[in-house]
Simulated scan of single mutants.
Amino acid sequence: MGPQAKLAAFRLPPLPTVGEIIKLFGLRAQKQLSQNFLLDLRLTDKIVRKTGDLKNAHVYEVGPGPGAFTRSILNAQVADLLVVEKDTRFIPGLQMLSDAAPGKLRIVHGDVLTFKVERMFPEHLKRRWEDDPPNVYIIGNLPFSVSTPLIIKWLENISKRDGPFVYGRTQMTLTFQKEVAERLTAGTGNKQRSRLSIMAQYLCKVDNSFIIPGRAFVPKPEVDVGVVHFTPLVQPQINQPFKLVEKVVQSTFQFRRKYCHHGIGILFPQAERSKNTEKMLMLADVDPTLRPSQLSILHFKNLCDVYRKMCDENPNLFAYNFREELKQKKREKPKKETDESDLD
């Protein structure tokens, strides 16, 4: 089959442009919801191509808005597209796309942070975790306010192999503020290295596909936008529960400009902080004078493994929260004596 015949297999019929849909339904982007629309279909086509070969694939699109990505996904000849949109104003425009692509587009009015996708695609698509990724893909151009909490939620799903990952190592292509995209992909020693870098990279192969200039969006955001592609790893680089890894990583980056022993120290109550911090760093073979951004995934693996052993030996340790201890001290001390030096 030649390329022209292949393209003719499915193409959306002529429709109003995304810009016309926005005018037709009065869809102004709401600043308080950090909404920004991408109207250039050449760009949305490019992003969809970066996702992989979507012919006959099953796609879960989050935050479709006025439907620019939705059009590009449908034109990629997918078998099935499920979109979840929280804002009711966008449903009529999406319905227009559904009418133009009979049997291809399912629209759910719901919140991606709580929506359960586990039973939305056929059982036969499920693959073993060790196999190649399933023919299921996630694509999203989410409001910035939602994208970070959602990727953390999905990373936890990856660690548990539930949610969208009951089908196997489902690949994701998502947009983020450029700075967040850089954090997700930052390597050891990079100034953008952060909690997000470790949490994403210990579970996924993370690629910063390309940057979209802010001017391509309506309204134009104050920052450029990064497109990030995630493929879950067969074996996570840290083999500990997600919440434990998250606690160690968050604590370590609490004082990102200081030596790493400051952040690691807040994993322990004040009374035994110095002794336990020294013990943890020594057993994990981590130099206490490295900055958090200089720690590799292997450093974090060692830190998490040692912390797990310490928690197994002391069942109350994991529940310890240094902020609660600070609050308690504040309540006990006269106001003028309160020492906030630990908060930096």
Rank of each mutant, 00 (worst) to 15 (best):
L150R: 09
A181P: 01
I198K: 14
R169Y: 08
N321D: 15
N316H: 12
P13N: 06
I151E: 04
L97W: 09
G2L: 12
P92C: 05
V228A: 07
T185S: 15
N75M: 11
G52N: 10
A68N: 01
T44C: 11
R119E: 12
D285Q: 15
E118V: 10
Q177K: 07
R183M: 05
P133F: 07
E324L: 13
L317A: 12
D80G: 05
H58M: 05
P3E: 09
P236K: 04
L295M: 14
R331H: 14
L343G: 00
Y320F: 15
A29E: 07
M120G: 01
P122I: 11
V146N: 12
F10Q: 00
G187N: 07
H58L: 01
S197V: 05
F25V: 00
T44P: 07
L125W: 04
K279D: 08
R308L: 13
P164V: 12
V108D: 03
I211G: 02
Y167R: 04
L33M: 11
A68L: 04
P221D: 11
V136N: 03
R331M: 13
M172Y: 10
Q4P: 00
K6Y: 15
E324M: 12
E325C: 07
H299I: 00
D80H: 12
L326C: 08
K333Y: 09
F217C: 03
S251D: 08
V206F: 13
V218C: 06
F115R: 03
F121K: 02
R323C: 12
M1D: 13
R291V: 07
S72T: 03
L82R: 06
S147M: 08
L317V: 10
F10T: 10
I266N: 11
H229Y: 14
D87F: 02
K116S: 14
N302T: 08
E179N: 04
A76H: 08
G52A: 10
A319C: 02
Y60A: 08
V180L: 01
G265L: 05
V218N: 13
V18E: 01
L94T: 06
Q4I: 00
S98I: 02
Y137T: 04
T70A: 03
G63I: 05
D40N: 14
R28C: 07
D344F: 10
A101C: 05
L24G: 07
F69M: 10
E313C: 07
V166P: 04
F210Q: 07
D305M: 13
K46H: 14
M282N: 06
L24H: 14
F10S: 00
L174R: 02
P236G: 08
I47P: 02
L7F: 06
T185W: 09
V18I: 15
V180P: 01
E118S: 11
T70M: 01
L82H: 06
P288H: 11
A101H: 03
K247H: 03
